[in-house]
């Protein structure tokens, strides 16, 4: 699987490099840790990984959430003006 991001940590103990994947529903990047036991998901509609959070189980694409947030802001601004 191709990564969505890349992380480099440098410390006195050495350098650690890791891939990150991005949740298609909340935009979050998380570090890929094989064997960590953390359950992630895959959205067949968005064709992408999800972070495993309960709120990201249902398919609401992040783009749609952004649109809803911006529409709400515009509505609030028009009411307050």
């Amino acid at each position: 699987m191709l990564n969505d991001g890349y992380l480099i940590i440098t410390s006195p103990d050495g350098t650690l490099e890791a891939d990150t994947l991005q949740c298609v529903h909340c935009n979050k990047h998380y570090i890929v840790k094989p064997g960590s036991g953390k359950r992630r998901g895959w959205c067949t509609l968005c064709a992408g990984t999800t972070c495993g959070s309960y709120t990201c189980n249902s398919c609401i694409p992040f783009e749609k959430k952004l649109d809803a947030f911006e529409q709400r802001e515009r509505l609030l601004n028009s009411i307050l003006q």
Binding site: D4, G5, L7, I8, I9, T10, T20
Partner: peptide, 11 residues
Amino acid sequence: ATFDWHANPGK
């Protein structure tokens, strides 16, 4: 330690 994270284009 220091970290440097970057996202791929489109991500």
